[in-house]
Each structure stands twice: as structure tokens, then as C-alpha cells.
Design a protein around this nucleic acid. Structure first.
Ligand code: ZN
Ligand code: ZN
Ligand code: ZN
Ligand code: ZN
Lengths: 134, 134
DNA sequence: TTAAACTCTATAGTCACTATAGAGTCAATC
DNA sequence: GATTGACTCTATAGTGACTATAGAGTTTAA
């Protein structure tokens, strides 16, 4: 199949498929006479794997690690488990950060409930003076 | 004061101060004989405002809007309030996304509690086959 | 006097793409 | 056979908010 069909089947954009190839996340497919990329079932599976990982916000560098691990099917999978655990930790950190941020923003927003002139807007005044709790 | 001192006082890096100047978020300061940037109290206040906004993850484009609004002290501040409201909405969206992501990742992680060989790792198998709930 | 610490400009790199330009190819319709 | 539209190719630039580096000049303290 050509790249457009692969894109439709996987939900990746055509450009990002070419990008993954350049970054060596997927192997370069064979080409047609006129240089079109031609993909087979195996290529499709590769890309689906990558797409699933990206849906989970796993970085391309991490995906490369996972693909490397898959190359050694007889080794222990502890590195896989570790990678996912670390990823979950990262997300927890980001969530904690966002919660704080939301608190600060809600606090800031409360400084101007009624419409004021810009000069008297409590939000702008706070932004000038307060170090915004963090 | 020179750029290094301004950086220390505001918590911005020297490079990002120069970057803000290039992006016209702060006005170009006067220069010393040998072309060093020299900042005064007003420059410091400008940058503190920007730093506070950045601490709240307000984008540079939004900061520009706020700075423009500050130029018209007699107008109503509804645009300020609206901007902050929208920003809070954005953060809520991101938090919802992250919660889903964490759910999917936790689910994925549970597919391999005990160490397996890579070949039998439930995580890798799931990544191949499952569309990762979203 | 010499070394460390600072400043300057300009440029490239980060991440995971998206968008564009300019050219070639293919399928279907008139 | 001609034309249209949809597709493909490569190469390059842009996104956001910086960080890092190179190579040069300046200030300050020991
Ligand atoms: Zn990760
Ligand atoms: Zn207000
Ligand atoms: Zn915003
Ligand atoms: Zn496992």
C-alpha cells in the first residue's frame, strides 16, 4: 500500500510517517518504479505500535528504546516495566504542577470579580507585585 | 544595573531576557559605552510582570496582549478577565487529558506485573494490538 | 598581570511534528 | 488525447520558549 493508505489506517499523518522513517523509528520501505513508498503488513504493524505509544505520550526516544528491547525477545522485560513506571511518574509530576497552577490562576482571577478600568484591575496589579505562589 | 543582576533579581536567565527584548516584550534598554545593556527600576518592573505571567504559564503572545491592555488604563478590563478565564479552561482541558492518559498507562502497566521475557511481556503485546483507550 | 567572571552577537539545537514550494505521477472524465 | 484532481516526491522553514555554543570583547579582583 502507498503512504496515504497507511496514514489512513494508522491515524498518522503522511508527513509524520516520513518523519519517523527519517528518524529511523520505522525501516525504509521498498519503492515503486516511480519512487513511491510501498508498505506491507509488517510496516503497518510497526507503525501501529508507534502510534499506540504516541497516544500514551511516550516520546520517540522512549519508543526507540522499546523497539530495541523488542529485538531481544528472550531477555527480561524489566526495562519495559521501568520505562512505563517512569512515564507514569512524569505524568503525576505534570498533574501536580497543573493543579498548583490552576490554584494560582483561580486565586488571581478572584482579584477582579467586577469589571474595572484597566488601571484598577486587581489582576494586573497582582501580576505586577505578587510572586504567584510557587 | 547590568543584565546579570537583572537576571538574578527576576529569576530569568540572561538569554531569555535578551530573547524577550528581541521579541519586543520589554523595551530595549540604554547601553553603556562598551555596549552593555543597562537597566533601571522600570525595566525591572516590566520583567517582573512578565516573569509572574510566565510562572502562570501565560504565553508570550498573551503577555503581549496584557501589556497592550496596560497601555490603555482607562478602558474596561474585561479582556484581562477573559484571558485568564480562557487560560484556566485550557489548564482544565490539559488536566482532563492527563487523567485519561494516566488511566491508560496504569492499565497498560498492569499487563505485566511479574517479570517476563520480552517475548511474553503483556505491555509490549498490548502496545501492538490495543488502540489504547481514547 | 593575569585570570575569572561577565558581556556582546549570531547561530544552532530542542521536540514532534506541520506547512509550504515546486515537481512528478496516476486515475478518471470529457 | 487532454485535462483535471488527487496523490506522491524532496527539501526547507516554521512552531514555542527558550537553552547552548562559538568567538570576541570588557571588567574586576587577586
Ligand atoms: Zn516518558
Ligand atoms: Zn479586571
Ligand atoms: Zn493561555
Ligand atoms: Zn513486561
Amino acid at each position: 500500500m502507498k503512504i496515504g493508505e497507511l496514514a489512513k489506517l494508522t491515524g498518522c499523518s503522511v508527513q509524520s510517517i516520513r518523519f519517523y522513517e527519517k528518524e529511523e523509528l520505522i525501516s525504509a520501505p521498498r519503492r515503486s518504479e516511480c519512487n513511491y513508498r510501498l508498505y506491507d503488513q509488517k510496516n503497518l504493524e510497526q507503525l501501529i505500535f508507534i502510534k499506540h505509544c504516541r497516544n500514551l505520550d511516550i516520546t520517540l526516544a522512549e519508543i526507540k528504546q522499546l523497539l530495541n528491547l523488542k529485538q531481544s525477545p528472550e531477555t527480561q522485560c524489566e526495562d519495559v516495566n521501568y520505562l512505563i513506571d517512569e512515564h507514569i511518574k512524569q505524568i503525576n509530576l505534570r498533574m501536580t504542577g497543573l493543579k498548583k497552577l490552576k490554584g494560582s490562576l483561580t486565586d488571581l482571577r478572584s482579584k477582579c470579580r467586577d469589571n474595572q478600568t484597566v488601571k484598577n484591575c486587581g489582576i494586573l496589579q497582582d501580576l505586577l507585585t505578587k510572586p504567584t505562589g510557587q
